[in-house]
Design a protein around this nucleic acid. Structure first.
Lengths: 213, 213
DNA sequence: GCCCCTTTGTGAAAACATTCACCAGCGAGG
DNA sequence: CCTCGCTGGTGAATGTTTTCACAAAGGGGC
């Protein structure tokens, strides 16, 4: 098995969610064609994506919904729980805490940090907000989420690295520098707005492209 | 000029932000090499991206920071203002409203809708929250933002389409069906978490890939 | 067992994106 | 005015991702 592309991983997430849906509809089997239809991609793409990890289907029948769901769960690493440290208890941070979907997928926010003295000591969603200064000495988190203003993002990233996280999810619109070997994902809403703006500005109006829609 | 890839547009956003930075540092010129360095990509990529839109640099000198900034502004459609309707005044919706960066880039949230009777009529960030029912008859928005729970996302998308928006930014973790010719971008935080989870689960730990980091 | 319809898995081809490599233009220094 | 060191623009080469197309199963009917 060679290197898996980011696009494939994103699609696996999609498949996983579609499988949840069809499972709750009571379907037992699903074809690559149907999986693709819900996603707006080709059935060949679905089969190719899955083939990187094994042969999960049965010719003539399709994929067993429950079985494929379990397989993808394992592939995505959702068959275990992840300890998440959240830095930044502002709007975005609160939104993440409030969204129960993450807990269901195995992401447990076990600590919340902030630099605002007014927020430190308060309770958010059952967790006491700690000072970021205390982050340095801590250990035991798998993933750090940065939901702070832009200006402190790099500093917080460094602190998270020092605290031994292996992956960072960054909501600040800046490319962070972190050591090689650690995983970094950035969610940049500004960029999404700009991408929309570009699409709407183009002469002849928006055109659909492939890629992450 | 052929079709511009989504990756190129994303990088333009990045360049734009880097240009802001170097402008505030007082630099007048910047080379593709320096632009690339801050981005973690190659200088050839920078030049190629820009060459899709014209020749903005001067050989031997590099790019004039202010000039390139203005050009990219135009390319991304940030030299005008966009009227944005926000649906969903929950955590994410409030976070968007609170973030002044969008206004600076030309995105004016001119209306807020919600379906929760408890929220309708209240004021958020200077805007009175209206009932989603009122959305149907309205016109005049360029972009609709969906920050509602998953279950109502498609319904809201339909209402936004009926209200004549040309682009939709969706924060619900589901692929929405909208008519061809409209632009859609989805920000799926669940997917980012799962992508991290995948990276951390891989034998040998996380490996960096190109693409949107 | 045999035919027919369906659907997977997968090499090969096509499309797409990135990087290379080099020419052309620029200013500086003498 | 010539040369040198830089730097942008760009066709060609390379690398990656997606799509095509088809052989290999599978089940049902008879």
């Amino acid at each position: 098995m060679s290197r898996i592309s980011e696009s494939t991983v994103r699609r696996l997430s999609h498949y996983y969610r579609v499988l949840d849906e069809v499972a709750s509809e009571g379907k037992r089997m699903i074809s690559s064609h149907l999986l693709a239809e819900r996603e707006g991609i080709t059935s060949a793409q679905v089969r190719k994506d899955l083939s990187y990890f094994g042969s999960f289907g049965r010719r003539g029948l399709g994929y067993n919904v429950e079985h494929l769901r379990t397989e993808i769960r394992g592939i995505l690493g959702l068959d275990r729980r992840w300890r998440v440290a959240l830095v930044g208890a502002g709007h975005i941070g609160s939104a993440l805490l409030a969204y129960r979907g993450f807990v269901e997928q195995g992401f447990d926010v076990v600590a919340v940090y902030d630099s605002d003295p007014a927020r430190i000591g308060t309770t958010v969603d059952g967790l006491v907000v700690q000072s970021v200064a205390e982050l340095a000495g801590t250990q035991g988190y798998d993933i750090g989420v940065i939901a702070t203003p832009l200006r402190s993002a790099q500093e917080v990233a460094d602190a998270l690295v020092a605290a031994g996280v292996r992956g960072i999810l960054n909501f600040a619109p800046r490319k962070l520098k972190i050591p090689a070997g650690l995983a970094l994902r950035t969610v940049d809403m500004t960029m999404e707005f700009e991408s929309l703006s570009f699409a709407l500005s183009k002469p002849g109006g928006p055109r659909r492209r492939r890629g992450r829609e």
